[in-house]
Simulated assay, not measured.
Amino acid sequence: MRAKKHAKKRKWLKVTGIIFLLILIVGGAYAYYVYHTLNKSVESMHDPIDREKSDKRTKDVKFTEKDPFSVLLLGVDERSNDAGRSDSLIVLTINPEQESVKMVSIPRDTLTEIVGKGYEDKINHAYAFGGVEMAMDTVENFLDIPIDYFVQVNMEGFEEIVNAVGGVTVNNDLAFSDGGFTFEEGQIELNGDEALAFARMRKKDPRGDFGRQLRQREVIQAIIKEGASVSSLWRFDNIFEALGNNVKTNLTFDEMVDIQKHYKAAAKDMEQIKIDGGSGQTIDGIWYYVVPEEEVQRIQSLLKEHMEI
């Protein structure tokens, strides 16, 4: 039962990280002011890492010059006496000149080389073995692009963030019951618990993951809308407290401000790139998700082009 509960919760880990990044990108002048007045909350998110400069990055990223950059979103399930594992890994590449963001979700059981260990294993084990640094190095090697920054999200954080903005209103195109809640078709209002159940349901939707992704986007857009509304301005202390409690990143305060200034246009077009053609294989008694080399190269080429490298 506990395993099932954790499996459900991890479905929403990635969404919280995307919410954080999109709020950062699309925030307006008032958000700029809030970043300054609530500097303490923002600083609590900052988590510098000890990582050598990537050989895939020939020059430092300069936000003031609108350089394309990448972010690894890590949804982490950390338990007591356990290093935890990154149960959700998403890479976002941001190009302000093309006014676009590309997002690739990497299946957590993907078989790849664990950089620093010298052997292949499930990609989500990199975090357990070597923390954020090893996870970034391993994903960088898998995609063959520089991974510049990370955003790590505590799996419990999503509900707190939804509640911090005062709940959300979404348009539901499929009536269903799940997680002890009933969701009618049409426009509905959700608190944090309800939003989590709404967004993670898959088995009762004939569209499967596609339907779940639609609901996740509905909630993401609703949070951004609520966070940017005049009626929510007084809640920004709660919002940043929720982010500060549940989000860690190596982005500094000044870098956040620069992103807000120079990268707003990138949020106009957000494309989800799907890894296709993979298959489950049992190797030495362990199940892995194996991605064909030609598919890996296809994803690498798309991201390299978007990052202009």
Results as ranks from 00 to 15, higher is better:
I114C: 05
D109G: 10
L74N: 04
G130K: 05
I114K: 08
A126V: 07
V61Y: 00
V71M: 06
E65C: 01
A83N: 15
E140S: 15
F142N: 01
N141A: 12
L111K: 07
N124G: 06
A128P: 09
V42A: 09
D47P: 01
D55E: 11
L143E: 02
V139S: 08
R79G: 03
G75K: 08
T93E: 12
F129G: 12
N95A: 11
A126G: 09
F129Y: 15
T112M: 13
G130L: 04
A128V: 00
R108F: 02
S88Q: 07
E113D: 13
A135S: 08
E113C: 08
E140W: 11
S44W: 12
N95M: 04
H36G: 13
L143N: 05
V101I: 14
S100L: 11
G130I: 04
I114Q: 08
S70E: 00
E120S: 13
V139I: 13
M134V: 15
G116F: 10
S44R: 14
H46M: 05
I49N: 09
V132S: 02
Y127T: 07
D77Q: 03
N39M: 09
S70R: 06
E78K: 12
A135E: 01
T110R: 08
L111D: 05
D137N: 14
Q98Y: 14
L92C: 02
N141Y: 15
D50C: 04
L111F: 15
V132F: 08
R79K: 12
K40L: 09
L89R: 14
D55S: 12
S105Y: 10
V132T: 10
G75M: 11
R57L: 11
N124Y: 05
T110F: 11
T112F: 15
L72Q: 12
S88L: 03
G116T: 05
K62G: 03
V104M: 13
V104E: 13
D137I: 08
S44V: 10
L89F: 06
D47G: 07
K62E: 10
Y127K: 08
V101W: 10
M136L: 12
N39E: 15
V76C: 07
Q98A: 14
E120K: 15
M45E: 00
L38D: 09
N81A: 13
T64C: 05
P68T: 04
D60R: 07
